[in-house]
């Protein structure tokens, strides 16, 4: 509830450097006091995603852990357990229709979806959503690379 209020009503403060990260630390501290097992689930999720080829993590600009493949964001996990992933609008509509995700907690009209990790059993579904996005990014990257090689075969020799 506090998260929703801050994100929707006090969203402007995220433009102040570090504010979003500090807010996210507050969420972590609150979880540490109130439901610390959730932090272990998030660690498990992070460990699983980091095992995928080419995945790195960074801090998300609005707070939380961001999963990346190269320069592409796969998704990000806020410290209260909200997992946000960007899909195309068609995929988003399908995921919402089948109950696998919800509309993004702020950007309703975009391709972003939100998934709420509330219990340990939610982890496989969260991982599966991230995998969907990961596979799309990887295949798109491979297609782009192949197209580049066809157009500029000189890259093949240099690579």
């Amino acid at each position: 509830m506090i998260f929703s209020f801050v994100v929707k009503r006090l969203g402007f403060i995220k433009s102040i450097p570090l504010t979003a990260l500090i807010f996210d630390s507050g969420l972590k501290l609150w979880l540490f006091i109130s439901k610390s097992e959730k932090l272990d689930w998030f660690d498990d999720l992070e460990e699983e995603i980091l095992n995928w080829n080419g995945v790195t993590i960074s801090l998300h600009k609005f707070g939380g852990t961001q999963f990346n493949y190269g320069k592409h964001e796969i998704g990000h996990l806020h410290s209260n357990g909200i997992l946000d992933i960007l899909f195309d609008k068609k995929t988003k509509a399908e995921l919402i229709a089948t109950g696998k995700a919800k509309a993004h907690h702020v950007f309703n009209n975009s391709g972003w979806i939100s998934f709420y990790i509330e219990k340990k059993d939610d982890l496989p579904d969260a991982i599966s959503l991230l995998r969907m996005r990961y596979d799309k990014i990887v295949s798109k990257t491979m297609i782009t690379s192949k197209a580049l090689l066809q157009e500029f075969p000189i890259f093949d020799a240099t690579l």
Binding site: L18, L21, I22, D24, S25, G26, K28, L29, L59
Partner: peptide, 8 residues
């Protein structure tokens, strides 16, 4: 909160 932010 700030020490935690720095640690992460």
């Amino acid at each position: 909160v700030f020490v935690i932010t720095g640690a992460f």
